[in-house]
Amino acid sequence: MRLPGLLLGPALLVNLAIFIAPMANLAALSFHEARPSGGVGPGPTLATWASIAEDEYYVELVTGSIGVALGVTVLTLLAGYPLALFIHRAAPRWRNLLMVACISPLLVSAVVRTYGWMVILGDTGLVAAMLRFLGMAKPPRMVFNLTGVVIALVEILMPTMILCLLAGFGRLNASLEEAAASLGAPRWRVFTRVVLPLSLPGVLLGCLLAFVLTVSSFITPKLLGGGRVILLATEIYDQAIVTLNWPVAAALSVLSLAVFGLALLLYGRLLRVVEA
């Protein structure tokens, strides 16, 4: 078949030029070393990898990023699940509207949404004003620290989580819940024995995406963290743009890809367990 090749060719070519080639190049670069004078030395060498492995700062960076990502993932799930279930159970004519309202923030730029959180969480923002109104003399700081970053990330990832959960709820219909109730299960038992198990694949996918997106999140920690919250992605940016140490940036990129791979592997395992 020649025609399919001809139709696929251009897209594949572009993919090769701007995806495969740069990624291979990037991986290779992590086996070079930055010259003190700037620029990249000849390779291959494990020097960059060795310096990262020995430096406690990077070890903490990786474990810290994973920790933050796990925390954000759990919070996003907790915030997204009730909303998703509510939308799923809503009457059809409301369901669509609610769904659009919930997932259209996905299409708003991360810069705008992060800026929105600065309006809310800033020292003179909405929350501070409300706390002062309630009599708190000195409201706690919520920007330029981890608290603000986590709050904003949870909100920014909620639409993705809700989308995954709704897809997962596809297998759940009202008659199943009614059947369980008719068999004498109280509401919370219906939830733990029927609703939750059936929605687990959606939960897993949502968690995978939330985790992965947090590890690679950049705009929110950069703007709301004010330089005090350093995650893998912000460090890659600083190394690449500020310090101009490309080999270290490349090695950190490969590391974050490895974290990704592990998350994906774990996801696959868990999915097999819940679907079995």
């Binding site: 740069p22 990037l26 690679s216 950049f218 890659i236 690449a240 990129s253 974050s256 990704f260």
Partner: peptide, 13 residues
């Protein structure tokens, strides 16, 4: 994949 990684790869190339 993380956009930051893609971005760095493109920058270098």
């Amino acid at each position: 994949l993380p956009t930051i990684v893609l971005a760095l790869a493109l920058l270098i190339l």
